[in-house]
Each structure stands twice: as C-alpha cells, then as structure tokens.
Simulated assay, not measured.
Amino acid sequence: MTDPIDPRVLSPDQARALFRAGLRVTTAGWCAGWTQANLIAVPREQAYDLLLFAQRNPKPCPVLDVTEPGEVSASLFGGDLRTDLPGYVVYERGEPVAEVPDVTDFWRDDLVCFLLGCSFTFEDALREAGVPVRHIDQGVNVPMYRTNRPCRRAGDFGGPLVVSMRPVPAAQVADAVRVTSRYPSVHGAPVHVGDPLELGIADLAEPDFGDPVEVRVDEVPMFWACGVTPQAAVMASRPKLAIGHAPGHMAITDARDTRYIVP
C-alpha cells in the first residue's frame, strides 16, 4: 500500500503537478514555507481599474505580482495559471457560471492575472507560536464572510470587504496579532477582533465562502482581510468576464514565506 502524501513537504512544482492532474483540495497547510496567493484575472480593459482597486484597498488586496495580458505564468509562479490551481470560479457579468479544475476553455489572450497575498502564508508562523489554526486542525476550508464595510471604489470595481476568521484562545489573541502583523504583504494584522455583529456577520456558522469551524467557549473570533474581496467586487460590479481561484484553493508560488516577513 502506498503511503499517503504529506502535503506539507511538497515543493510548489510537485503540488502544481497534482493539481494539474485533477486533484481538488483546499491548500491550507500545503507546501510549508512557500507563499500562497489569491488569483483574479480580468480583461485588459478592466485591469487598470482592478489595479487601482487593489492600491486603494491594500489590506484585502496586497498585490504580489501582475502578468502581461495573455501570460499564463508569472515571475512568482512558474506553473500555468490556467491549470495549476486546484480550483477556479468563472464569472460572467458578476455571476459564477462555472467552478472547474481547469480554465483553459475560458481563457482569453487579453486576460491580466493578479496574484494577491493570502493569509495561509502566515499560518505556519501562527502554529509555531502555539496559536491553533482550527480549519487546518479540522481538515476543512477557512470560513470567509462578506462584511458591512465597503471597500473604496475604483472605476468599475467596488464591493464589500471580505474577511477570513480564525478562533483563538483569549490568552493568545495578542500573540496572534503580533505574529500576523509581521506579514503586511499577506493581509497582516487582523481588521477586527471579537463581536462578529460589528462586521455585519449574523452567524459564524454560515460563512459566505468556505466552511464553518468550531468556536469554543474560551475563544475569541479574529478576522483578517481576505483576498476573496476582489471576487466579491466582481460579483457586485459585474464585469463581462473574470476568473478567480475557488476560495481556499490557492496558487502556490515559488516565493518563500520569509520574503514577506518584516522585522
């Protein structure tokens, strides 16, 4: 019997080969030490507005790399952006029309790809500091929620801030803030700690994206800005076409997590 693969020890190339072959899985905990990224691709005519949207909303949209129109790889991503993520969502006029493991059939030569920082990048550092990461422990996708906080609009793009949530023991909240604040290029410190109603989130058991996780009596929900925010902007702003990663199914890049740590 073949031993199961430990996804933590895989290289980005090895992980991308598995995804290209059809493996569909959330990538939290994969390729320890390698940076994960959100993907959003739009036609060239919308690319400047999306870049401006990211510049005006750097907390949820920290730009790591941008391709030329039609390019299918990037300086941080040596694979094929059409096939080497484990899942994609295709939007037409803001509506999700397909969730697929390969977007080759939807690809256009005018598409510009944006790779944005992902909070999965700092999860190893959280665990090394003794802070639990519940969705990894439970083997599910991180819960993500639309909030009542609007992003700053840019041209065609506007919409709500999306956040990811991790429950943290009350005694370790300060540790979680300290650890994640050292990663400003991958969302950095949380945007909110405590009562989800202050973000307009009525029920933590009903995330808009991802899966619910257990929140224990002695734990505080902590919320980080999330790179699914541009997809919420796509749904709100309704461009003719956009392609994003399926939430939690990230691009595993060739950059090291240590590249994004600040002293």
Rank of each mutant, 00 (worst) to 15 (best):
T2G: 12
D3H: 13
D6N: 15
P7A: 02
D13R: 14
D13F: 07
D13Y: 01
D13V: 13
A15N: 07
A17N: 11
R20P: 06
R20N: 10
G22N: 06
L23K: 14
R24I: 11
A32H: 14
T35D: 03
Q36K: 05
D49F: 00
D49V: 02
A54G: 14
Q55K: 15
N57E: 05
P58G: 10
P60S: 09
V63G: 09
V63H: 03
D65T: 05
E68N: 11
E71R: 14
E71M: 13
G79V: 05
D80R: 08
T83D: 01
L85D: 04
G87P: 07
V89C: 14
V89W: 03
Y91H: 15
E92F: 00
E92P: 09
E95P: 01
E99Q: 15
V100A: 08
R108H: 11
F114N: 12
F114M: 10
L115M: 08
T121H: 01
F122G: 04
E123F: 07
D124V: 11
L126D: 06
L126V: 10
V131D: 08
V131I: 15
H135S: 04
H135G: 06
I136F: 01
Q138G: 05
G139S: 10
N148L: 04
R149N: 02
C151K: 05
R153M: 01
F157M: 07
P160S: 14
P160M: 13
L161N: 04
V162I: 13
V163C: 06
V163P: 09
V163L: 08
S164T: 14
R166S: 02
V168N: 05
A170I: 11
A171V: 13
A171G: 09
A171P: 00
V173H: 02
V177H: 03
R178K: 14
V179K: 09
V179Q: 07
S181L: 01
R182F: 01
R182V: 02
Y183T: 12
P184F: 01
P184L: 08
H187Y: 05
H192K: 11
L197G: 14
L199D: 07
G200P: 05
L204Y: 00
A205F: 00
E206I: 04
D208A: 04
F209I: 11
D211V: 10
P212E: 00
D218R: 09
E219M: 09
F223W: 06
W224L: 11
W224F: 10
A225L: 07
C226R: 13
T229Y: 00
M235C: 13
K240S: 15
L241H: 04
I243E: 08
I243P: 06
I243G: 07
H245K: 05
H249I: 08
A251E: 10
T253E: 05
D257I: 09
R259H: 11
Y260R: 09
V262K: 08
P263K: 07
